[in-house]
Amino acid sequence: MKELFEKKQWSGYVFILPSVITLMLLVTYPLLYGIYISFFNTNLLNQWDFVGFSHYVEIFRNLEFVNRIVLTLKFTVATVGGHVILGVGLAILLNRKLPGQTLFRAILILPWLLPEVVVGLLWKWIFNPMYGLINHYLIKLHMISEPFSWLSNISVAYGAVVIVCIWKGFPMLMLMVLAGLQTISEDLYEASKIDGCSGVQSFRYITIPSLVPVLLVSLILDTVWWFKHFTIIWLLTQGGPANETNIVSIDIYKSAFDYFEFGKAAAMAVIVLFVCSFIGYIYRRMLNRDND
């Protein structure tokens, strides 16, 4: 009996072993290796000069990196805020029994299904000053007299990038909120009508409290994802014009592959890791408080 129990106990470890090995190779090892690189001045081949925490000291002494963090936070807040407004609003509409509901759901989820590379190249073509659709229709409607360079203009490039990122990411939050809305019992709304509650009161005292756990998880996941985002912004502007869209992930890429400062780039990535971990910590605290 004891031998049978021990076999069953070890069989569980055998089943999870492939997943553990995969995570160690694809997540844990690259993470630890990146932290290791941050303590060296290296070209990753034959130069490994140990510099300790000097990269971190240099980064925090440089106000440009702090400005990149601030810009990244602004970008994240604007993008996630747009996701909340669009996602919650559309989820509420799709939760109603309207004609063509299934078709609209399929259309609205398309941006999320498209790869980020496709989205970046698609919008770069739309914003193109010579043959882009936006300039074409604005000229046709006599709203502008000549082609406008949307991604090269300092005053509008940042806003254009944010719009593209909002368009790409809102379906995720929309689906999460829609799933949360469909778990709310109709009996609660019927009871509120009997008690004389208006639609606004039902939304405030039933819908919002019921959606708080879903919204909390969605917001944290969305915030972490877009804080470290790279692909779409790189394809659209490569951090320009004049560093207006040069968020921290772009700065890390340029440090590593343009200036070959791999140690410094790794140190910046470690700082981003701590920022994302701090966001996760806030999430756990808020979730535990909500459960209490």
Rank of each mutant, 00 (worst) to 15 (best):
228 K>I: 02
202 S>M: 06
200 V>N: 05
220 I>E: 03
230 F>P: 07
217 V>M: 12
210 S>V: 01
232 I>G: 09
230 F>G: 09
207 T>H: 09
233 I>P: 02
212 V>D: 01
201 Q>L: 06
192 S>Y: 02
227 F>V: 05
199 G>I: 05
235 L>D: 14
230 F>I: 07
204 R>P: 00
230 F>V: 08
230 F>Q: 09
233 I>C: 03
191 A>P: 04
232 I>W: 08
236 L>T: 09
197 C>A: 15
237 T>G: 12
227 F>R: 03
231 T>H: 01
193 K>R: 13
202 S>A: 15
208 I>T: 12
223 T>Y: 11
196 G>K: 04
193 K>L: 11
204 R>G: 01
222 D>I: 00
218 S>T: 14
218 S>L: 10
195 D>P: 04
222 D>N: 12
201 Q>C: 00
235 L>H: 14
223 T>W: 05
193 K>S: 07
229 H>K: 12
194 I>L: 13
223 T>Q: 08
221 L>Q: 07
209 P>S: 10
216 L>Y: 02
233 I>S: 03
220 I>R: 01
196 G>L: 05
194 I>D: 02
209 P>Q: 11
197 C>V: 10
217 V>Q: 04
191 A>H: 03
201 Q>R: 11
231 T>Y: 00
236 L>I: 07
220 I>Q: 04
201 Q>V: 00
224 V>Q: 11
220 I>K: 02
221 L>R: 06
